[in-house]
Design a protein around this nucleic acid. Structure first.
Lengths: 237, 237
DNA sequence: GCCACAATATTGTCTATACATATCTCTATC
DNA sequence: GATAGAGATATGTATAGACAATATTGTGGC
C-alpha cells in the first residue's frame, strides 16, 4: 500500500460509506466545515475531495443546501447498462412485464458462479418476459444476491422490471457484459413468439458494487429488426 | 451561452485544441506558469483546470517533465471500443489480417449517412477478414472519412488492423454501437467458413471526434462459441 | 565517452483567506 | 394566515504563497 494524500484519504472514506450502503442515496454527507474539523485540514482540501466525488457521480452538491449521496443514474440517456423498461417506453410503446417464475433458493452445489454470487446468502431467481405493446420483446433470466440486496426479497416484480428497480435502488461500480448470437431453441421460440432457429441476441450481464456481486442476468432478444444500441464517451481512470 | 468560470474557459480552450487535432497526442502543452501568465490568474486555477483534463483522460502530467496530450487509450483492458487485433492477441492466438478490398471513392449519391461521414471529402472503403491462428474470426467492412483522417490514405492496412491503427492515432469523443443478431447469408458463410444460416453477431459502430464523423464499421462474428465482452464502470458527466 | 552527483525546473499537495452566489429560515408586515 | 424581505449559511470560485516530490539537465571526475 503506497502512501496516499490527504484528499485521497477523504475521498476513500466517503466512497467506502457510500458503496457499503452505510450512506444510502439521498443521505446528507457532513458539511465542509465538519470534515475540515474532523481531518484537521483546510477547506480547499476537503473541497478538492468532494469535487472529485461529484465528477465521479457519487455525490451531488447544492449551494446552501449541502452535499448528498447521488441517486444512481436516473434512467440515463447514455445507457451503459441497458434498461429494457426505459428503452421500450422511449420507443413510445406500452411496457408490460409477465413474471413467469420467482423463487428464493440456495445456490446450486457445484456451480461456482452461483455460490460466488450468493456470497453466503440466498438467491432470488426470476424469469420474465418483457412486452412492448403486448408483443414479446425479450426473455430475461435473473439471479439476485439477497446477501447484497436484501430489500429485493420484498419487491413485487410483477409491476416493475427487476433491472429497472435495481438501477434505481442499488449503486454499482462495475459491470461485465457478454454478448453472443444464438439460434432460438424451442422453448425460447415459444416464449418470444418467433420461429425456432431464428437468430437471437443473448446478453449476459454481471454487476458488482465494490467487491459484492449484486446480480447476474441473461436477456434474449429476437435478432430480426432489433438492435442493441449503446453510446459511449471515453472515460478516464 | 451562460457565464462560465475561468477554469472552465481554460479547460475548454485546451480541449478544443486537442480535439481539433491542432495538438496531437504526445504534444507538450504549455507549463502552468505560461498558462498563468496567458490568462492572468493564479496557479491554483490553472492547476484545477489541468487536473480536470487529467481525470477526463485527455492529458497526462509528469513531475518536472511537463504535461502532454494523452495517447488515446493504449489497448485498454476495459474495452469501450473493442479492438479485434488486441483481443485476439490477448487470447494467445496468432493474429493476421486478410485485406479483401481497398478503394478510395466518393460517397454514394442518395446515401445520406455516407455523405455525412465523408464531410465533403473522399471515403476509404476497406473489407477485411480477421484471422486467429489462421482461422476466420470476423469479417469487417469499414468506411473511413479521409476529410477527418487524411493520414489513413497512406497506411498499409494489410499489416495493421484498421481499428487498431485508428485507436492508436485518432482520439475520439463519442461512439455509437448497434448490435444485432443475423443469420449468415451465403457470402458471409463462405468468408467465415461456417454453415449458411448460422447465427452471427453484427456489430455496427460509428465514431466521432467532436462533431467530425471519423469512421463507420460493421463487423460480423460467428455466434457459436464466441462472445463480445465489455466491462464498464459508471461514468459521470 | 561514461558515470555519479548536484542544481534546477515543473508538477503535487496543502494552507489561509476573501468574496460571490444560491437558497433556506426567520421575521415583519399586510 | 399569507407574503415579502432580511439575514444566515454552505457551497463556488479564485488568490498568493509555501514546501515536497520527482525528473531532467548540467557538471566534474575518471
Amino acid at each position: 500500500m503506497k502512501r496516499q494524500t490527504l484528499h485521497q484519504t477523504i475521498v476513500g472514506e466517503i466512497e467506502g460509506r457510500i458503496l457499503s450502503g452505510e450512506w444510502p442515496p439521498g443521505h446528507r454527507i457532513p458539511f465542509e466545515h465538519e470534515l475540515m474539523a474532523h481531518y484537521g485540514c483546510a477547506r480547499m482540501t476537503v473541497n478538492k475531495a468532494l469535487a472529485g466525488l461529484v465528477k465521479a457521480g457519487l455525490i451531488v452538491r447544492r449551494q446552501r443546501a449541502g452535499s448528498f449521496v447521488a441517486h444512481p443514474r436516473p434512467a440515463s440517456a447514455i445507457l451503459d447498462i441497458p434498461d429494457i423498461q426505459a428503452d421500450i417506453a422511449g420507443r413510445g410503446m406500452a411496457y408490460a412485464i409477465r413474471l413467469l417464475d420467482r423463487r428464493r433458493r440456495k445456490p446450486e452445489a457445484g456451480k461456482a458462479e452461483e455460490i460466488q454470487l450468493a456470497g453466503g446468502g440466498d438467491l432470488l431467481a426470476l424469469t420474465c418476459v418483457h412486452l412492448g405493446d403486448g408483443r414479446p420483446f425479450a426473455l430475461e433470466e435473473r439471479l439476485i444476491s439477497l446477501a447484497s440486496v436484501p430489500e429485493a426479497a420484498s419487491v413485487d416484480f410483477a409491476e416493475t422490471a427487476p433491472g429497472h428497480w435495481l438501477l434505481g435502488h442499488v449503486p454499482w461500480t462495475e459491470a461485465e457484459h457478454r454478448i453472443a448470437a444464438i439460434s432460438a431453441d424451442r422453448r425460447l421460440a415459444g416464449l418470444l413468439d418467433i420461429a425456432a432457429g431464428t437468430a437471437c441476441l443473448a446478453l449476459s450481464r454481471r454487476t458488482w458494487r465494490g467487491t459484492d456481486h449484486i446480480t447476474h442476468v441473461v436477456q434474449y432478444f429476437p435478432g430480426n429488426g432489433f438492435d442493441l444500441v449503446a453510446r459511449f464517451t471515453p472515460q478516464g481512470g
